[in-house]
Simulated assay, not measured.
Amino acid sequence: MPRGSKAKYTEEQKRKAEHIEESYEEKGTPKGEAQARAWATVNKQSGGGEKAGGSGKKTSASAKAQAKSDSGKRAAQTRSGHGRGSKSSLESQSKASLMTEARSRNVSGRSKMTKAELIQALQTK
């Protein structure tokens, strides 16, 4: 396909480019420049013409489900040791985050507590 060919663009992309081009022309931009700007805008917004996705190989539904499950397991392993009430987890949080946690657990007097006091209260609750 020759360079500059618009054959791989969807009808929606072509309509969008035409509309943008008309808008530029109404503002007094020369036709060639208006067309170039319009296609540049469409390319920026949608990444260019229709493309075959990725490597071209199809992923089965079971492979996708397995990948999702594996991802969840990796995330859980990352969080291990940082469970609810864990001292290392609480110390790594900001005071605002601790306040939110204390609010959800109904810790009384939380608004006047320091970060260290919030950590202690959350560990005991």
Rank of each mutant, 00 (worst) to 15 (best):
Y24G: 02
K68P: 03
Q35P: 04
G47Y: 00
S71D: 08
G72R: 14
A38D: 06
K44T: 03
Q35R: 01
K73L: 11
A34Y: 03
S60R: 06
S62A: 11
E50G: 14
Q66C: 07
N43H: 02
A63T: 13
A65S: 05
G49L: 00
G47A: 00
A67E: 14
S71N: 09
Q45T: 01
R37I: 00
A75H: 09
P30K: 11
R74K: 15
G47S: 00
E25H: 09
K51E: 06
G32N: 08
D70W: 08
R37G: 02
S62Q: 14
S62T: 08
Y24H: 03
T29K: 01
K44W: 06
G47E: 00
Q66A: 09
G56F: 09
G54W: 03
S60E: 08
K68V: 03
A52L: 10
Q66R: 11
G53H: 13
A67L: 11
Q66I: 09
S71E: 10
A34R: 01
G47T: 01
A52H: 14
A40R: 05
A34M: 04
A63G: 14
E26T: 11
A38M: 07
A65Y: 05
G32D: 07
G53S: 11
A67N: 14
A61S: 12
G53T: 15
R37F: 01
A36S: 03
A61R: 10
K27M: 10
R74H: 14
G28I: 10
A61L: 12
A34V: 02
